[in-house]
């Protein structure tokens, strides 16, 4: 199965969804998601709170599977492979598609063990020291901590912790990195560091980033999907994509009124 997923890493479109509807029990959380995510680009999901950006993001590595009431219909293709086909093991999906979370969440282990965690799980046989160093360098953290690899990851500053989490994610050499508001708990300087890092990482990885910060989306991303939310008669709020295009189009000449209103700061 790993090989199916691995050999799937060919097409220029990394993800393609067709009429994806996401439910929690009977509740329709997000509807009609049909988008294509291109390779080696940064795709940003923006929109007001509760519009389902993170929910959609977590479908791409099947992390929503951990929620018992979750189910979806429609199709989600990773390259050409249906990600929700019955023969696909969600654990293997997550080994291809890394994730960085909103709140920095290093393990209460040493910096080294944090980065080596994923590779050890996968039974990596190569030079672990070298891999850890390379991952930390890619995450622009190496110079900060190269003398204290044995220190606890949880003792680092917030911005360093988040870069450690990025290093941990790229240590397993994933194809895609999902980032769920990775800078929302960080100060402006750490945020800029992470944004600079994104530009370097996209050479090797495809990045999807959920953000509340519109400047961040306009600065850092190549493509932007604007999500909105509407309530039905029962008061249930369902998210959907209003507009998805190149980032400069979304921010400078959006086709939809709602997008224009949101990116100009009139609501949300």
């Amino acid at each position: 199965m790993a090989s199916e997923l691995q050999s799937a890493r060919k097409t220029e479109t990394v993800f393609r969804t067709e009429n994806l509807n996401i439910y929690y029990g009977d509740f329709l959380a997000v509807r009609d998601i049909s988008i294509e995510i291109p390779k080696n680009k940064i795709t940003a999901f923006i929109g007001p709170s509760g519009c389902g950006k993170s929910t959609v993001l977590r479908c791409f590595n099947r992390l929503n599977d951990l929620i018992k009431s979750f189910h979806l219909d429609g199709k989600l293709f990773y390259h050409d492979q249906d990600l929700y086909a019955p023969e696909i093991d969600p654990v293997e999906v997550r080994r291809q598609i890394g994730m960085v979370f909103q709140k920095p969440n290093p393990f209460p282990k040493s910096i080294y063990d944090n980065v080596a965690f994923g590779p050890r799980l996968l039974g990596y046989k190569g030079d672990m020291d070298e891999l850890v160093e390379r991952s930390l360098k890619q995450a622009a953290l190496w110079d900060d901590i190269k003398d204290k690899l044995k220190a606890m990851g949880t003792d680092l500053s917030g911005g360093q912790q988040q870069r450690l989490c990025i290093a941990r994610a790229i240590a397993v050499q994933p194809d895609v990195i999902l980032m769920d508001e990775p800078c929302s708990a960080l100060d402006p300087i750490s945020t800029l560091k992470v944004e600079d890092l994104l530009q370097e990482l996209k050479e090797k990885y495809t990045i999807l980033i959920v953000t509340h910060n519109m400047q961040q989306a306009s600065r850092a991303s190549d493509r932007t999907a604007f999500f909105n939310v509407e309530a039905n008669a029962k008061g249930q709020r369902t998210g959907y994509i209003v507009e998805y295009d190149r980032t400069e189009v979304i921010f400078q000449s959006p086709k939809e009124q709602a997008t224009q209103a949101y990116v100009s700061g009139r609501f949300g």
């Binding site: 992390l63 080994r95 979370f101 994923g118 799980l121 996968l122």
Partner: peptide, 18 residues
């Protein structure tokens, strides 16, 4: 144990036992 840590492990492709 914070739920974020658990999610981090799952996100790296750890099974429940791991």
């Amino acid at each position: 144990v914070p739920a974020e840590i658990r999610q981090a492990a799952y996100g790296l492709g750890a099974t429940r036992w791991e």
